[in-house]
Design a protein around this nucleic acid. Structure first.
Lengths: 226, 226
DNA sequence: TGACATTTCAAACGGATGTTTGAAATTGGC
DNA sequence: GCCAATTTCAAACATCCGTTTGAAATGTCA
């Protein structure tokens, strides 16, 4: 193996393959699997048209490789316990969960691309969705349910726990999935660092208020208030 | 063939045009604007391949016509004050809003297609999104904000009202936008009539619990801007 | 019926896409 | 330095797409 140069900058053995992954991540996230063209991907990667088929077999296998690579990047950069101390309370863990989710989705670079690809997968699943749900989403869901059930109390039933967990993640995903509509209706909403802090604050407060309120009066017929 | 019968069943003057609208609604909702082919649409409509261009000009104008037609069908079948008596309380109006939104999204037929088309528009907007936001979404948003602000109380600031309104709609849209993932993680969740009632119940209770709780302690947190 | 306008039809056009091909260039081991 | 394996390259292939075309069929009205 000739690692002739110390730099992994270029001309390395896997250079073209990595460039293809990077370029494909960009293009797939921008326009989706179907609208993405291998010509565009290869052009951005500085590679020949035939490079995709040579290195990955076909366009779909390249897509699956991108999905896996961007997931690794996202979960490495923004784990679900992002910035959390050891013995954190359930409130703190809920806030960290929401915060890391928003950061993962709205950040720039490869880690954010996974969020866009996931959103497209949810809209029209390719064959890659099953593996993603099994290895990625399900553990996340279980973590959130455990946080929610600690907030709700032990006497809450499973259905309620899962519905509340859904209500939490839905608020965060909304700004991502419906972004084109949101920015038209609320032009002052920003998704920079400060904007994400504000969103984290609202979603956490809203959810905590709901869950703790539901915990105190678990099973009244309708939403009774004092 | 000149069956000039009194029935509007077929061979009417606008028959081909209507068949195209119906077939296009199906195909666009199933696979999206880009992946839909005029060949497939014309085949389902029992029309010639050139029918789309003759009756609508091109594929995009057909798409816009479908968007408008399905919106009319949806809003007619499930208005936002669905099943609401005259002088309803804010709680009742919130429940009706959530209920009609879920019904609109998860029903079958043309009225549900609009929800799917809207979801795709949010993912990758076509040129038709601006008109939809202006004529469709913005009034809905204003209605919900008015309901929420009545629940929050007059002293709440506009940003909080809008964030709470977003939190309400996000919970409903989540089950539609992320349905492929939701059904994999919660296989027991159904979206039939009874399932929608349960979802309506949860989202309304969750949101009311949050909003009334926030109303009682308006400004404890951080990230407060005036 | 005869004229004219409207609608339908099969065929083709021009362009874009994923993939294949076979030769050329490069690399790696001896 | 040489040979074999790996990688790149330009070109072409086969297919599908939205749209156009001009003639044929159908409908309209006096």
């Amino acid at each position: 193996m000739g690692f002739s140069l110390a730099t992994t900058e270029d001309t390395g053995q896997m250079a073209t393959r990595q460039h293809l992954l990077e370029a494909a991540g960009q293009v797939f996230a921008e326009v989706g699997f179907r609208a993405a063209t291998v010509r565009e991907i290869c052009e951005r990667a500085g590679a020949n048209i035939a490079a995709v088929n040579y290195h990955f077999g076909d366009k779909e296998q390249l897509y699956r490789a991108v999905l896996q690579e961007t997931y690794q990047a996202a979960i490495k950069k923004y784990p679900a316990d992002y910035g959390l101390r050891a013995n954190a309370t359930a409130e703190e863990r809920l806030r960290a969960f929401v915060h890391s989710l928003l950061l993962r989705i709205f950040s720039e670079g490869p880690s954010a691309r996974h969020g866009k690809l996931m959103a497209r997968e949810m809209m029209e699943p390719t064959g890659a969705l099953d593996a993603i749900v099994r290895e990625d989403i399900r553990p996340m869901s279980a973590l959130l349910v455990s946080i929610v059930s600690e907030l709700l109390g032990a006497e809450a039933d499973d259905a309620t726990k899962r519905l509340c967990a859904n209500s939490v993640v839905s608020q965060a995903l909304f700004y991502h999935h419906c972004r084109p509509v949101v920015v038209r209706i609320h032009p002052d909403l920003k998704f920079d660092r400060a904007g994400i802090e504000r969103l984290t604050e609202h979603i956490t407060r809203f959810s905590l208020a709901a869950i703790t309120n539901l915990a105190t009066k678990p099973r009244t017929g309708r939403a009774a208030k004092k």
